Computed example of a mutant assay.
Amino acid sequence: MRSNEINIMVNWGDTDKAGIVYYPNYFKWFDIAGHQFFRSCNLSPQKLEKERNIILPLLDARCSFEKPLLYEDIMTIHTEVQEINNKTIKLSHQVFKGNVRTGHGYELRGWVSQQDQQIKAVPIPLEVKNILQENTHTKDMADRTVFNA
């Protein structure tokens, strides 16, 4: 299945009083990594909405925390398609500081048509499924730019 990696630096506002990453930030970073993943395979959420009236709402998310991240740590988020169903896409996320995994989880997103102020889950087209099932790995930005979230 298709996968992608991005780097993000922990900012001061991402930490608690002890200087450790405040846990909800993992979900923010999962969202950023998910959007970058879709952009990396030419399925930008903005493009999908504009050209196909498709949105990708979050239906479920989970995260397990294993090791702390601290201010100015640079993490790598590895995102991979875990599952494609008729109307949903499940992305897994693994967060690393160097070679040490600090957390992992997933996002379940719907493939939803938005027309006339109504939304309805619709089948994912075969060409999109084929793109998502390709055994391709990308690293966002050739120079591995650090994204500040």
Rank of each mutant, 00 (worst) to 15 (best):
T138G: 10
V10D: 08
I32C: 08
D14S: 10
E5N: 12
S113Y: 05
S3R: 08
D16F: 11
H78T: 02
V112G: 02
G98D: 00
S3C: 07
G103N: 03
N53I: 01
M1N: 05
C63S: 14
D116G: 12
Y106T: 00
Q118W: 10
Q46V: 07
L59H: 04
V112D: 00
Q114A: 10
L59P: 04
Y23H: 10
G34M: 12
L70F: 15
Y23G: 03
L132I: 01
M9L: 09
L91D: 07
I89Y: 01
Q114C: 11
E80R: 06
E83C: 00
Y26K: 05
S3I: 05
K97L: 14
M1D: 07
D31Y: 14
M1Q: 03
D73S: 07
A18D: 08
Q94F: 12
V112N: 02
D31A: 10
T15A: 08
C63D: 06
L48Q: 01
K97V: 07
A142K: 14
Q115E: 15
K87M: 04
I54K: 05
S44C: 05
L56C: 08
D14G: 11
I8D: 06
Y23Q: 05
D116I: 01
D140C: 14
R39A: 06
M9D: 09
N148G: 04
F38T: 00
H35T: 10
I84S: 00
I20Y: 12
K87W: 03
R101Q: 15
S3N: 12
I89Q: 03
K17A: 14
L59A: 07
E72L: 14
T79H: 09
T136V: 13
P68E: 09
D16T: 03
I74Y: 05
N85V: 01
I131F: 08
I54L: 07
P68T: 05
F65N: 03
Y106L: 04
N4V: 11
N42Q: 07
D140R: 10
L58E: 00
C41Y: 11
K90H: 03
I8W: 06
V21S: 04
N130H: 13
G19K: 02
H35Q: 11
Q118Y: 15
G34V: 07
V10H: 07
D31F: 09
G103H: 09
D31G: 06
Q117N: 15
L48N: 00
N42K: 11
K120E: 13
L126A: 14
H93D: 05
S44A: 06
F96A: 05
N99A: 04
S92F: 13
D60H: 09
I32K: 14
N135I: 04
T145R: 11
T138M: 13
L108Y: 10
P24K: 06
T79F: 14
D140I: 12
L70N: 11
K120T: 14
L69Y: 03
S44H: 05
A33G: 09
G19H: 06
D73N: 09
P123A: 14
H137Y: 10
G103F: 06
K129C: 07
E51G: 09
H35P: 01
T102F: 12
P57I: 01
L48W: 00
G103L: 03
T136K: 14
K129L: 05
Q82F: 12
H137W: 09
Y23L: 03
K139M: 13
Q36S: 12
N53A: 09
H104K: 12
I6R: 02
L59N: 03
T79Y: 13
S44Q: 03
L91P: 02
